[in-house]
């Protein structure tokens, strides 16, 4: 315990010394009032701000660094407390791809295969619905939108078990990835909500110009609205793809019994929950599993960070 107290005491002493020196210099007229204000007020606040941010960033990055480093360790080295490997070995990262039991590569490919179709088709059907709900005029349109919006409030826990039973008994979709793919193709209400906000911002004159030039409302959508809204669609597609890639409960429920169909998330889960002894391999797998998300985020952070829902939009 004494070490911690020394640590805290040293910091307090350092801060006190800083303010004391500033004060003494100021009262001895060695620095101007202006400079004193900067040194004793502005600078400490700014320093504190960046210190907090650096600590937060370090805390956020630490688990990633830790997993990456542990992946480079050998079997015995894992049980040393220091995260730095005694000797960097790449065998873990090679072996998880080679091991026929882990099937890492097929896991990654499966994840992509299950995540892509619902995203592509789902974003298209969501855009269609958003177009109908924002730019077409028919009776009961706003009621339909209200109804759709209300379904967001339905907690998913109600449908968890009955959907499973339905997919298993009614549709006979056990041990196929279809329950992960088909529902997503119908679109999602949150995506409709975002895209509707976007489409409401496009000028009406575009539709009118299209109508005058002889398009019907379907043509207006496919030739005018869709080409204009691709940035919003792309953002939603990327978010949905990342969500599908990271999905865990869906694959666990529907394909949890068939190793050939495993997604990468299930691979990580089955490795972590069964084979804790080879922790260096688990960490290597985790690192590999995180790479697609991180790469996607790095290249498309504009879309990820820009698509935050503004709370104004839920104004009743």
């Amino acid at each position: 315990m004494y070490r911690a107290w020394i640590f805290i005491g040293a910091i307090v002493a350092l801060v006190a010394a800083w303010f004391a020196v500033c004060k003494i210099l100021y009262s001895a007229k060695r620095i101007s009032a202006n400079r004193y204000g900067y040194l004793a007020r502005v600078f400490p606040m700014r320093f504190l701000k960046y210190l907090l941010l650096v600590i937060a960033a370090f805390a956020i990055l630490m688990p990633f660094m830790y997993a990456l480093l542990l992946g480079f360790k050998t079997g015995d080295d894992v049980f040393r407390q220091s995260p730095i490997p005694e000797k960097f070995v790449f065998t873990n990262y090679v072996e998880i791809f080679r091991d026929g039991d882990i099937r890492l590569l097929s896991g990654i490919l499966n994840s992509f295969a299950y995540a892509l179709p619902p995203c592509i088709v789902g974003v298209l059907s969501s855009t269609m619905a958003a177009y109908a709900l924002s730019r077409l005029h028919f009776k009961g349109r706003d009621k339909i939108f209200g109804l759709l919006f209300a379904t967001i409030c339905i907690p998913g826990v109600i449908t968890l078990i009955p959907s499973y039973i339905m997919f298993a008994k009614l549709y006979n979709w056990t041990d196929t990835p279809l329950p992960l793919i088909i529902p997503g193709m119908c679109g999602s209400v949150t995506v409709i909500f975002f895209l509707r906000q976007f489409l409401l911002g496009l000028p009406r004159e575009l539709d009118e110009a299209g109508i005058i030039d002889g398009l019907n409302k379907g043509g207006v959508f496919f030739y005018i609205i869709m080409p204009l809204s691709w940035p919003a669609m792309l953002a939603q597609f990327l978010l949905a793809f990342n969500g599908g890639y990271n999905d865990f409960m869906g694959p666990l429920m529907y394909i949890g019994s068939n190793k050939q169909l495993y997604t990468i998330q299930l691979t990580v889960y089955s490795m972590y929950s069964s084979n804790v002894k080879q922790i260096e391999k688990v960490m290597a797998t985790c690192t590999v599993a995180l790479i697609p998300s991180i790469v996607l985020f790095a290249f498309a952070q504009k879309y990820f960070l820009g698509s935050a829902v503004s709370a104004d939009s839920i104004k009743g």
Binding site: A67, N246, Y269, Q301
Partner: peptide, 22 residues
């Protein structure tokens, strides 16, 4: 900093949880 601090939000829950588990 914003990009770094947002990073865990885009990452797989299973992978990050396994790391935290260890």
């Amino acid at each position: 900093f914003k990009v770094i601090l947002y990073l865990p939000m885009v990452c797989s829950v299973v992978a990050t949880t396994s790391i935290w588990g260890w």
